[in-house]
Computed example of a mutant assay.
Amino acid sequence: MTDRPTSPWPLPLPPGEEPPVPPLSVWPTGQRDPAAQLRDSGCVPGTDADIDRIPPAVAAYAIATYTRPGDLVLDPDCGAGTVLTAALRASRHALGLTARARWWTLARANITAAKTAGAWRDGSVLDARPKVLATIRAAGLVGRVGLVLTSLRTAPENPKDRAPSPDRDPDSAIAELVATLAYCEPLLRSGGHLAVVTRPLRHPDGSLVDLTTPLLSAATAAGLAPVDRCVALTAGLRGNRLVTHASLSERRAVARARAAGTSTALTAHREVLVFQLAHDAELSAAAVAGIPWSPEDDVIRPAVNGVEYPGWRRAA
């Protein structure tokens, strides 16, 4: 027997066993409508075309909760750059990646707008796909990122289609995100977090697509442990009621779906899954349980590109 705490689940998981779902919490991030949020955060016109963007209020809440001033926030598929803007406005450094020329232009413009408004931290966006994070070009980021904050991107390539589609297949988007999680895991500093934001999707019959299970499995495979599961409201709280902030196109899409006999509803939230490095989760569990952690239990992970990084040691 040993006093060493066990991780949130055995790694790897036994065949057929699913990772546990962490406790649910609710973020009151929908008090302002989407247009007002974009305006308040200083985003440039056209940012609203990115329907998979993380709403500025959600990004700001996650950054305030999981980082400290001066931390580096990374969005490996940043779209129009709402995460980058929120990070800079909160005195965090920001780095984004996108391979879509339209989003790169908007993200760059949003960074410039934030700097013009007084943000002094370093912010940049690269014209690159997330897989560049697994190359020597990203070696300087290893063990330095305080928060990876990104969204599951399931929108069609056609930017004019801004309304949720009940028959959109998220499988390819999840597969891309699985790889992205693996690229990002070595970049997290000790105590850092990785958060994935998803918007509700529906099957053709109107039932919700289960995005949580495959994302938890993907994170497990990447060496991450779930620590929080949150509902970030995009609808406003008015007493005991939720008031949606859906656009006209979204309302029309829901009306068309209902007329066709598909049960659907307006979106009122985003789901946020938050992870840590599995070893960090063990340390947190040990601290909560009051179990001492021996220095012999520290972990130094394999070198990357032939270099060992001291920041990878998980100190007690």
Rank of each mutant, 00 (worst) to 15 (best):
V83W: 11
L233C: 10
V125D: 10
R53N: 13
L194K: 06
W103E: 15
R301A: 14
L216A: 01
R153A: 14
D71W: 08
S151E: 10
G236S: 12
A316L: 04
A90H: 08
L147A: 08
Y309H: 14
V196M: 01
L97N: 04
L152T: 00
G223M: 07
P20I: 03
P186Y: 09
N240E: 13
S284L: 15
P56Y: 09
D71G: 12
V197I: 05
L283M: 11
R199E: 05
G192N: 06
S263K: 15
R162I: 15
L11T: 14
E308Q: 14
D50C: 01
V148G: 03
R168A: 15
W104H: 15
A289D: 09
F275T: 04
P28W: 07
E308L: 15
C184F: 03
V148Y: 02
S247P: 01
R137K: 12
A90V: 05
E18A: 08
R100S: 09
I111E: 09
G70E: 08
D33V: 06
R108G: 13
A101L: 11
V132R: 10
V125N: 08
S217P: 05
V243C: 09
R199Q: 11
Q31K: 04
G146E: 03
P22G: 02
N305I: 11
D167V: 06
P214A: 03
T82R: 15
P69I: 11
G140Q: 12
R108N: 15
T234N: 09
A195C: 04
G261A: 05
R39T: 11
T213P: 02
V304A: 14
E18N: 06
W103I: 07
A315K: 11
R53P: 11
G70F: 10
D280V: 04
W312F: 13
I300G: 05
P8G: 10
P204D: 04
S294T: 01
L233F: 12
G96N: 03
E176G: 13
L13H: 07
L133P: 00
K131W: 07
D161V: 14
A175N: 02
H93V: 12
A219W: 03
A99N: 05
A139T: 09
S284A: 14
P200F: 08
V26I: 15
V254P: 00
P22N: 00
L216V: 05
N240I: 10
V197W: 06
A49K: 00
T150V: 10
M1G: 12
P76I: 04
Y66P: 02
V197K: 06
P22Y: 01
R238Q: 14
G118S: 07
V304D: 14
L187E: 09
V73W: 12
W312E: 12
A62E: 02
A59G: 06
G123P: 09
A101M: 08
A64W: 01
D228W: 02
H93Q: 13
R252P: 00
V209W: 13
V44L: 02
I300P: 00
L242V: 08
Q276V: 04
D3W: 00
A289Q: 04
S190K: 12
R4G: 03
P34Y: 04
E271M: 08
E271Q: 05
T85F: 10
D33M: 05
L72Q: 03
A109V: 06
T98M: 03
G311H: 14
D33R: 13
A179H: 12
T6V: 11
T29F: 07
R39D: 07
V196N: 01
A316K: 01
M1I: 00
W104V: 13
G239Q: 02
V299Q: 13
